[in-house]
Design a protein around this nucleic acid. Sequence first.
DNA 1: CTCCTTATTGATGGTTACTCAACAGTAGGG
DNA 2: CCCTACTGTTGAGTAACCATCAATAAGGAG
Lengths: 221, 221
Amino acid sequence: MARIESARLAGARLSPTDRKVQILAAARGLLERRPIDALSVESVAEEAGVSPGLLFHYFGSQRKLRQAVLRAVADELLDHVRPDPALSLGEQLRSGIEAFVDQVSRHPSVYLAVVRLTSTSGNPETRALHRAIRATFTVWITDGLTGAGLPPTPAVDLALHGWQAFVEEVVAAWLDQPAGDRMPRADLVDLCERGCYQLVMLAVDDPGHWERIVPLLGRRA
Amino acid sequence: MARIESARLAGARLSPTDRKVQILAAARGLLERRPIDALSVESVAEEAGVSPGLLFHYFGSQRKLRQAVLRAVADELLDHVRPDPALSLGEQLRSGIEAFVDQVSRHPSVYLAVVRLTSTSGNPETRALHRAIRATFTVWITDGLTGAGLPPTPAVDLALHGWQAFVEEVVAAWLDQPAGDRMPRADLVDLCERGCYQLVMLAVDDPGHWERIVPLLGRRA
DNA sequence: CTCCTTATTGATGGTTACTCAACAGTAGGG
DNA sequence: CCCTACTGTTGAGTAACCATCAATAAGGAG
């Protein structure tokens, strides 16, 4: 039995834009309950109260449909984590990590799907999307570091990509533990935050250079 | 046109064990060329010179077949990275990282499939396999640390899981760069090795405790 | 109310995972 | 050496699913 959002939306004629967002919303809801591999065209169509053929009309193929769903979820995640320029660089990092932890905690299956599952699969577009997410986060941070006087280098870039994987894995493992056994959320965020500094430091050639930069991170713009 | 290993093996009657390893070998060979998502039962059967039905007889389902392939590859990887007890703890870590980098470099698609793609997908068995790999590496390291006087804690465990994700991502990103632009392999290994120490240090409550342990890691058993 | 645009459907084909009853190769007893 | 029982193996058949496309019907413009 399909969960019909609204009798109006289900069968009736809709503008292409409205129909697309409605189908995407249905798919997103389904993603909450099952892995993305299990998102068949039929199931999404049923969830949206629409014939399967329509999905092909709007999205072209199953792959592109899944791609669109992932992209929507990714945008949503980026919106939540986007840094606030009013804060100091150090505060931006910390609140970004907190926002990430909270968002993933709220809908683990959905966001872990975007962040981790995406990395897999020879599928070039999906891989590209995943790289784009990583790159966006990386740019945010390197921009901040550049502002503090640390020019971007390939090594720092590599370290930041690795750090993101570290954060994803740590948060995922933290969520996998029974709620009672988990370390406090603040400690988790601490680990991620300090991990960022330590790993970037490793990638900076001159330790003295790094020492001079750290104090700048706490200063408000 | 199927690549038949040996005319004897292809059509003839074989013992169940021999047939299983032959099919697994065929699937593994195919995995070298295409992503695991593209491992259809038909293609593996053709590669093994056998009817598709036989794969179901031996493995039960496509999922279990893929699972078995991943498990075989994982065992292979663990064998290569297994630490040498004759070395000091520090040397064990470094040569383990080197073995990992080399093995993944040799067959990127295959081992990245095990290490990363595995983490995805709600598929519980696959997820379990992935956790088992992580846990195995983690036990190797925590055993070493325990030997040096650092008892295992949940925080250290978490940090080590995260560190593995860091290493995987860094190595994957390193391999994605054109060979000319890559930093030297030794620098990559350095980054991973020092990353391990830094991240574990963050997870240890008492910094002094950690300071006392570090010198022990270089000493041969 | 009528026409025309176009959102939507239903029929259809091809691929692929999966089942099962029938077949055939091999070992062991006479 | 032949026959028989066991079991490894096959091939046909089913169902689910991705994908295509001509036909249909909803809704606004005149």
